[in-house]
């Protein structure tokens, strides 16, 4: 059991290189195909279109010809909550414990049979990573054959979200049990569907706690709380890496990487002059 795997709990996270991301959408489709996400005839109202992984289009706001755009894939951030104690914005508000924070993996679960659709978690999540089944999912006649047994298809009236392909973690643990080393999940044994699908390998997924994993080497998370904002823990020591809305103290586990300063600046809100102070911060200095 990983609960007592000599307390080296995992902390699965992801870093996405926005300079490599081409906005092609492979991650969106791979995620939908892997997790039995339904589709409707008209999905053009992006406010009730269920895409666990959504690719946002960012712009530097300048006018022609200096305008620039970048793409930002946004899965569920699996927030660790203030001080990384597991009180994610959504977990702390769900009235029926339909979503909880797995301290052994750092993954925020969503249980479709417990959720009764009050949608409070959707209001609490600042990343809009939670989707509600406004319609009863229906697959055209014959297409239910491609549904995967690893993820239970949902029903109308409940909230669903990215699970970091937790079923792949379950399969990896089964394999580890079978081969006798139940507490050691190899890096390549548990990779999410979007990571494996990305044609430009822009997404790197792994255990943030394990220095041997690529994601840890890129992000170099700082275990101590940030002196200027004690809610923030695990801030990246790589100046090119940032997190979305880090100042809110949600402590997301999805990091983003970009060489372009205007892209990094879109990660959070800054008052006048704040950005220049921390523009190329190295390590623990953070914005107050």
């Amino acid at each position: 059991m990983t609960q007592d795997n000599h307390n080296n709990a995992y902390k699965f996270g992801m870093v996405i290189d926005l300079d490599k991301c081409t906005g092609c959408g492979s991650c969106m489709v791979s995620c939908m195909s892997e997790n039995n996400v339904p589709f409707k005839e008209d999905e053009s109202n992006k406010r009730d279109s269920i895409t666990w992984m959504r690719v946002y289009k960012l712009t530097n706001g300048k006018s022609f010809p200096d305008t620039e755009i970048a793409y930002l894939p946004r899965p569920c951030q699996h927030c660790g909550g203030e001080g990384d104690h597991g009180h994610s914005p959504c977990v702390s508000v769900c009235p029926a414990t339909a979503t909880d924070y797995g301290y052994d993996t750092g993954i925020v679960s969503q249980i479709y049979t417990r959720c009764f659709g009050c949608r409070y978690c959707m209001g609490a999540c600042p990343y809009h990573a939670r989707y509600f089944n406004w319609w009863d999912p229906k697959w055209p006649e014959g297409m239910e054959k491609y549904l995967s047994p690893d993820v239970s298809p949902r029903m109308r009236g409940i909230v669903e979200k990215c699970s970091f392909c937790y079923h792949r973690y379950q399969a990896a643990r089964d394999k580890a049990y079978y081969h006798g080393d139940k507490d050691h999940i190899k890096e390549e044994d548990y990779q999410t569907a979007c990571t494996t699908a990305c044609p430009s390998n822009a997404i790197t997924f792994g255990d943030l706690n394990n220095p041997a994993h690529k994601v840890h080497q890129i992000v170099k998370p700082d275990p101590h709380p940030d002196p200027r904002n004690h809610h923030v823990v695990g801030k990246s020591r790589n100046p090119k890496v940032f997190r979305l809305l880090e100042r809110l103290g949600t402590n997301p586990k999805v990091y983003y990487l970009s060489e372009r300063e205007w892209v990094r600046k879109q990660g959070d809100h800054y008052l006048e002059g704040e950005w220049d102070k921390i523009k190329n911060h190295h390590g623990t200095t953070s914005h107050g």
């Binding site: 029926a96 414990t97 959720c115 009764f116 009050c118 409940i158």
Partner: peptide, 16 residues
């Protein structure tokens, strides 16, 4: 308002 009225009592039974 809730999506699954038949499961409304979960808010009491599985209270967080």
């Amino acid at each position: 308002d809730i999506g699954q009225p038949l499961r409304g009592w979960f808010i009491f039974w599985h209270a967080n």
